[in-house]
Structure formats: C-alpha cells, structure tokens
Design a protein around this nucleic acid. Structure first.
Ligand SMILES: Nc1ccn([C@H]2C[C@H](O)[C@@H](COP(=O)(O)OP(=O)(O)OP(=O)(O)O)O2)c(=O)n1
Ligand SMILES: [Mg+2]
Length: 860
DNA sequence: CTAACAGGA
DNA sequence: TAGTTCCTGTTAG
C-alpha cells in the first residue's frame, strides 16, 4: 500500500543557486524509511571541493579556513597531533560515532572524550578524523557567511519556500496505518550473556581489542559503545570483558526473531539482524474486529507486548519496540524505553509534535555525525531548532536535502517500494597495513575469489568493477572500470583490479620508489545482471581439487551442471568454485528457516548490518584534497607485474577482532584439517595479457600443489616453501611473479557476441583496438555453457524469500532508475594521486615474510 | 552514462 | 590497536 511516495520525482535536485562556496555540504541522508533521499550535497556547488584543497575555493572568505586545510592534509606536517587535536578537539571527537548519541544515563561525556584522546589522540585514525572535521568546519563557516550575506528578499523567499515544504510534510503525515519497530536489546552482548550467565552484571563487550560490535548496558555506563575500538573500551573500563563474536549464533537467533515477526506482518522490513519494521495495521484491525470494544491503541500495545513476550520465550532475549503512525517515528520510539520496553506514540499531530520537538536531531534516522555537526554549527540541535530555522536551512541546503530535513522533523517516512533488488555486491578486508605488492596482490586475489564465488552462487554478473583502497592514513580511494559485458569470473575481476591497484598505488605513492601502505582492500561489482550463465566459465585458477581445465576453451566444464534451472531459487551452483568455502562450520546450523536467504555464506564475517535501512544519504562530498592533478592517466602501466597467487580463503586479518574471518575462537583446532584438501591445484592460465600492461605472458601451465601446512611460509604464487632469509625470499617471489601470468582476458564475454574485450569500455562493440585483439584471441572460447534460459527472471526473485531483506525500506526512493546504473559519488574532480604520505616504515622484506607466514597459517 | 567521494546504518 | 556491506546523492566530464 503505500507506496507512492511522494516525490517521486526525483529528478535532480537542483540546487539552488549558489554559488559557491565551498564545499561542504552536507547532507543528509535520508533516512530511513523513506526513500531515498537524501541528501544533498553540498550545496554549493561547485565542485569545488575537490579542489578544495587547492584552491581555497573561493568563496568568500576563503581565507583562513580554507587555506588551512590543504596544508594540513598534506602534510606531513601534521605532526603536531596533539596541538591540533586540542584545537579541534571537541569537534574531532564529536565526529566519533559513539561520541554522543545514545547516552546512557550517567556517562561522563567529557571524561570519555578525554580518555579517547589520551588513548588514541595521535593515531592515524584521529588525524584523518580531524581532517574531515576541518572540512565540516569550513562548510559551517561558508554557510554561515552565506546566510549572513543573504538579502532580506532572499530570506523571505526562503521562508516562503520552507513554508511550502512544511505544509507538504504535514500532509504526508497520516494516521491511518500502524507501524511497530522492534529492536533487540544490546543484541550480540545479550546473546553472549544468555549463553554465559557469569557475564551478567559485569561490563562486557563483544569484539576484540581492535573493534567492538556492541557492549552490554553495564559497560555502556562507562562510555563503551558499538564501533569503538576495544582498547579504548578497556581504557574507559579496565574491567571490561571482551567476548569474541559468534556471528552464526546471532544469525540463527535472528532467524527465530524474524520468524515470530512474520506472524504479524509477512512483509516486514528488516534492518539488520536485530531490527525490523512491521506494518501491523491489518493485524490490529483483525483483532479489533473480533472484539469491538478494543481501541486501536490498546490493541496495538497488547499485540506488541505479546510479540515481545514470544520473542523472549523463544530466544530468552529481550526486545524493545516503538509503535507509531510512520516507520520513522516507530523506529525513534523503539529507543524510548530501551532496555526492555515499548512506547506507543499517540496518533495525533499534537502528540507527534510534542514528541519530536525536543529530540536532538542525532536521534533521527538519517542524521549522522557529520550532519549533526554541521547543523549544530548552524545553530540547530533539536527538531524544534530545525523547524525554527527552516528558512535558513532552505537557503543553505539543496532542495532535496531540505526536504529531507522537513520530513524528518515531522516524522514522515516515505514508503519504499518493496523488494528492491540488490545493486552491487562487494567484499573488503582490513589487514595490517602493508605496502608489499606480493601481500596486497595475494589479498586482492582472495577477495576477488570470494566475491566471484558469491556472485556465482547468486547468479550475478556485473560490468562495473570497483577497487577500494584504504591507505594506512585512512584515506580512501575508489577506482572503477566498466566493461562492455558483465563478468563474474574471478580471473577477469582480479586482472582488472590488479591493474587498477597498480596504477593507483603508484599514483598515491609518496615517493617514486615506495608504495604507500595499505590497510584495506575491497572489490565491488555493480551494474549487475542476473543470469545463470554468464559468469563463470573462465575461472581457472584454483579449483579445488581436480579439475583443471585449462585451456581455454571453454568448455570447461564448468558449466557443468547446467541444466537446472528451475529452480526455484535454488541455486544452481556450479561448483567448481567454492573455493573458499571453508568448511568448518557447519555448525551453525543455520537456519533453517529460510529466511535469509541471502547470504549464504555465512561464513564468518560479520554480518553487520545489511543494508537496509536506512541509508540514505550522502552528504557532502567534497573534497578531499588533492590536488590536482595532473594527470592522470597516463599511464598506467606498470606497476606490478605480478601475478595472482592462489586464491583460497582469505586470510583474516588480525587475530582477534571481528571482521575477519577466521579467527576462531577457541582453538580451533581442528579445523583445519578437515578439509581435506590440502592440496590445492593452481593452474595457470591462459595466456593473456595483463590487463593493464600489455604484455602477454606465457602460461605456465603446470599446476603446483601446495601442501598445506608446513613450517616455512609458502610462496603465494607457486605455493612452495620459501627460503627463510629475506633476500632469497623476495627474490623467489619476484621470480615467481614474473613467471606467472595473469590472465584473464580482458573481458571475455561469455558467449556469443563478439565482444571485444578487454579493455574496458568504451568502445563498444566491435571495434577492435589493438588491445582487443588480444583479448579476442583469448576469449574465444568460452562459450556458453548453458543456454539458459534467459529470461529469467528477475532478480527479484532472488531475494525473495524472505526477508526482503535488505532492503529495507526505509527509505526508498522513488525512483525509477533504469537498470543498470550505479552511482556513487561525490564531488571533486578527478585527480588522483596524491594523498598520503606517510612514511612507512615498511620494509618490504619483513612484510612479505609476515604476510606469507600469515597466509600460510591461515591454512591454506 | 561514468567515475569518484562521502555519509549513513 | 579503529570492522563490514550496501546504498544514495552530487558533481564533473
Ligand atoms: N556499528 C555497529 C553497530 C551494531 N553492530 C551489531 C552489534 C549489535 O548488537 C547489533 C545491533 O545493533 P544495535 O544498534 O541495535 O545495537 P544493540 O542491539 O547492541 O543495542 P541497543 O540496545 O541499543 O539496540 O548490530 C555492529 O556490529 N556494528
Ligand atoms: Mg538492538
């Protein structure tokens, strides 16, 4: 029902005019429920931002602020962390997600911040935070100035437009539907306490010294929060007990939780493992029809009490809920009586207004740290303030963003259309920062393998491939390529990402000879196509036992199977891959229910939030700083020449922590073995040219086996034991890399068509460019495997069952959007390079060893 | 239509 | 000693 949304339009927001300014912008996001929206960026336009650094952009003043920023970034200079932090102190810490927001009663905020600064005030993370905060500060200054410079006429106009927006928002607020937002209390922590009663009453958090996913209420009294590093939690609360996360367990508990919700609204929106938004209008109405003496409020409250009681009985865990006339309000209300309670917001405009006005804006879904800080700088801290200063906000932000603010201030949520299909799929991993090409390549390859395995499982292929790199400085780079044809093959993906990584690291390197240290690598595939066949086919590189395939040609069997189809959803799986699967486990049981469908992996990782919900926003954009550029392009070239290592399970990064996969808790022990396999066959692949460089490499062909464990580290390329001394080790690895090839074709398309390949893009069709040629040859083969029926259907189905996951609805957008698209965004121009500096200590030899040993131990 | 960035959950 | 995954808006070509 609902749907509709409003606006629908979409179109682009326009911004107002503006001129300038610089950057910033903020935006907001939208939030939740609703649609999409969100945001606005900056207003200003201009893109300046990007340049920002460079120029100070203009705007007025400029000066001061602007200038500063750039410099700092760069710098190396930053050196004085302390001073800087002090200066910006509050604003910096204010940016921390756990900075404020849920305040549990008696937490001494000042003390918490002081502890955080003392504990990690000079870390790279904090420096980066400071840079970002500086940008927000600049934005505030520019907006303030713009407002002050506004003529009476402009202000009047803004006020008039704002009135219209308010009217529109009020019209959207209806009281005809009843929503309930249900959220488990301190979810992961509660599960752990339930399974280990000794923890009750003691401060405890789930996670490791590096990152906490959540904390129980006892620990929250000390300021310990979700997304806070464990070592800071320990500093805040010395007796804090850290428990390793058991994601599979949370997932199974979540399935039980959701199965209960389904009885009240089979189409509920899920927001992660522990929260969901239900439309209980029909359910409430049925009960009222049964007993005409019941009021809607009484019925809804009783129904929710019952729901929570069932959850408690089934999971032995408590949940809190909010009942209101919109999803957005229900969500906010679910926090109202948090630990184990529920709150009913009367269905009258006065009640809603009274509830919202005093709320700090940060409590509204879609208003995050940045938006909060920005608005605070403009004098807005509560919903009431937002309404009072609506003319100012109207003048300063883009229409879309302003509209979002008004919706949020009135509790309006825009309906989402349901189901929403997935638009991208990605995997990323954080590890100990390194600048070793070998290590990075090895990690990248694993990431690509994991991602393609998931894609194949879900029968997805995509044309837009994006590499994400987070430097040790916490600066993030994202670079993408769009291929003419969708791919789902690991070797193709790896070849493309590898080429981009080489190019970018080179551009970002502080000095010609040294690569910047990297702490995270991620790969995302978008512009997705659902389809059974596509994909696959050329994956050669590691296959699990057997099989080889080689050659190109396709055939490869892989395909294998085929046929299937049918399905229901099931997946067809092609096996072949799986690579990483890992084995273990099993345990989790998983579900059974169906719900989820999604994922399948379950592996280890943190599920984190699914998406859902909210999202919306994007705020700003801008800047960064870099300078310009120069260049770009150019070359690409060189860079690594290495090759892909065997793919196998991702290494996990650190030991404890969440996030990665492995780790195991207890001793794992065993595990490993299991599997059998121990041997992995690595194949070489076809010759092809490296995507980036144009070299062709001869295939090695032979496959080498990698013994699983062994004493010395194994070469990520050939899998053999490495020499123990650094020089020899490096030499060996380099040689290996040179030997191997990379493969892949450029873009092979699978079937028919001729396609060109390789080079990304642009050219379309036929044309063959030099580059293409190569690829052509390579590709040839492939073939399709199966005919598949194409047609298939819609992706939607996939997600289908259950949940819907994701999606969430919360927001939504209206929109239309054509099929393939993607987005992303921000401002700035392009330019690349730069960034970071850092010195790295690196030592590649040492790093390599380190990495290798880690890789080796990760079993594989 | 793309790419890149930033923000949010 | 600061995680994961997915999404969205914006700007600039
Ligand atoms: N940055 C975050 C936030 C949350 N979570 C995980 C751990 C939480 O237990 C779960 C649910 O998130 P909530 O925001 O609902 O937080 P809690 O359920 O822990 O606490 P609350 O009682 O405030 O709902 O998601 C996470 O991994 N990383
Ligand atoms: Mg919760």
């Amino acid at each position: 029902m609902e749907d509709d949304d409003s606006d629908g339009g979409d179109g682009a927001p326009v911004h107002g005019g503006d001129e300038d300014e610089e950057e910033e912008e903020v935006q907001h996001g939208c939030g939740g429920e609703e649609q999409k929206r969100g945001v606005c960026p900056g207003e200003d336009g201009e893109g300046g931002d990007t340049a920002v650094a460079k120029r100070a952009k203009v705007t007025t003043a400029n000066h001061t602020t602007t200038t500063t920023l750039p410099s700092l970034s760069s710098a190396s200079a930053l050196g004085a962390p302390c001073a800087a932090l002090e200066r910006a102190g509050s604003s910096v810490t204010g940016r921390l997600a756990y900075g404020r927001n849920k305040t549990v009663k008696g937490v001494d905020h000042e003390k918490v911040m002081a502890t955080i600064l003392a504990t990690s005030g000079s870390s790279a993370y904090m420096k980066r935070l400071q840079e970002r905060s500086a940008r927000t500060v600049r934005s505030i200054a520019s907006k303030t100035q713009r407002w002050e410079a506004a003529t009476p006429r402009e202000r009047r106009r803004a006020a008039a437009v704002a009135e219209e927006a308010v009217r529109e928002a009020q019209e959207r607020l209806t009281f005809s539907r009843v929503y309930v937002h249900c959220d488990m209390d301190a979810f992961y922590a509660s599960v752990e306490e339930r399974d280990n009663p000794d923890l009750k009453g003691k401060p405890m958090a789930v996670g490791g010294m590096k990152m906490l996913t959540t904390a129980n209420y006892e620990a929250r009294k000390y300021g310990v929060r979700s997304a806070m590093p464990g070592y800071i939690g320990k500093a805040l609360c010395p007796h804090l007990i850290l428990i390793k996360p058991r994601f599979p367990v949370y997932k199974s508990v979540s399935a039980i939780f959701k199965s209960i919700l389904r009885d009240y609204d089979p189409d509920f929106l899920s927001g992660g493992l522990d929260e969901a938004s239900l439309d209980i209008t029909d359910c409430v109405q049925r009960r009222m029809d049964r007993d005409l003496s019941l009021t809607r409020e009484a019925t809804a409250c009783a129904l929710v009490e019952e729901m929570r009681a069932r959850i408690l009985a089934a999971t032995n865990l408590t949940a809190s809920a909010g009942i209101a006339c919109t999803r957005r309000l229900a969500k906010t209300c679910s926090d109202w009586k948090k630990p184990n309670g529920q709150y009913f917001l009367p269905f009258t405009l006065d009640s809603v207004t009274a509830f919202l006005r005093p709320l700090p804006i940060r409590k509204l879904s879609g208003i995050g740290n940045v938006t909060e800080e920005l608005l605070r700088g403009l004098g807005v801290e509560t919903v009431a303030g937002m309404l009072e200063q609506r003319a100012k906000l109207q003048l300063l932000f883009r229409p879309r963003t302003f509209q979002f603010f008004m919706h949020v201030a009135h509790g309006v949520s825009v309906p989402r259309t349901r189901t929403r299909e997935r638009k991208s799929i990605s995997t990323e991993r954080t590890f100990d920062a390194t600048s070793s090409r070998v290590q990075l390549l090895s990690i990248l390859n694993r990431i690509c393998s994991k991602l393609t395995a998931e894609m194949q499982e879900k029968q997805l292929a995509g044309r837009c491939l994006t590499l994400k790199v987070k430097l040790a400085t916490f600066h993030v780079l994202q670079r993408s390529v769009t291929l003419p044809t969708p791919i789902a093959d690991s070797s193709v993906l790896f070849a493309q990402m590898r080429a981009i990584m080489a190019r970018e690291l080179e551009a970002a390197s502080p000095s010609p000879s040294r690569m910047p240290a990297v702490r995270l690598l991620g790969v995302r595939v978008s512009s997705l196509t659902f389809g059974r066949n596509r994909a696959t086919v050329l994956d050669r590189f590691v296959t699990r036992r057997g099989n080889g395939g080689g050659d190109d040609d396709g055939s490869d069997g892989d395909c294998d199977k085929q046929g299937m189809d049918e399905n229901e959803h099931s997946a067809s799986r092609q096996d072949a891959v799986d690579t990483s699967s890992r084995g273990m486990t099993a345990v989790d049981e998983d579900d059974g229910d169906g719900d989820d469908g999604d994922d399948g992996d379950e592996d280890d990782m943190m599920p984190g939030l699914f998406n859902d919900e909210v999202t919306d926003m994007a705020m700003m954009g801008d800047d960064d700083g870099d300078v310009d550029g120069a260049m770009d392009d150019g070359d690409d070239g060189f860079a690594f020449s290495d090759v892909p290592p065997p793919a196998r399970p991702l290494p996990a990064a650190s030991h404890d922590e969440i996030g990665n996969g492995n780790s195991i808790r207890g001793h794992d022990s065993d595990n490993d073995d299991d599997d059998d396999d121990e041997v992995v066959v690595v194949e070489a692949q076809t010759p092809l040219r490296d995507a980036s460089c144009h070299l062709a490499i001869a295939p090695t062909g032979a496959a080498s086996t990698i013994p699983k464990s062994a004493g010395s580290p194994l070469c990520p390329v050939c899998g053999r034991h490495l020499p123990t001394e650094n020089a020899a080790l490096n030499t060996h690895v380099d040689e290996c890399l040179n030997r191997h090839l990379l493969s892949s074709i450029a873009t092979p398309d699978t079937h028919d068509m001729h396609n060109t390949a390789a080079a990304p893009t642009t050219t379309t069709t036929t044309t063959v460019s030099a580059a293409t040629t190569t690829s052509v040859a390579a590709r040839g083969t492939v073939e399709a495997t199966a005919p598949t029926a194409t047609g298939t259907p819609r992706p939607t189905s996939t997600p289908a069952p259950s949940s819907s996951f994701s999606s969430l609805q919360l927001f939504s957008s209206s929109n239309k959007k054509p099929p393939g698209q993607q987005r992303a965004s921000s401002k700035k121009k392009k330019k690349r390079r730069k960034q970071t500096m850092q010195k790295q200590t690196a030592t590649s030899a040492v790093d390599i060893r380190h990495a290798l040993s880690r890789a080796a131990q990760r079993w594989s």
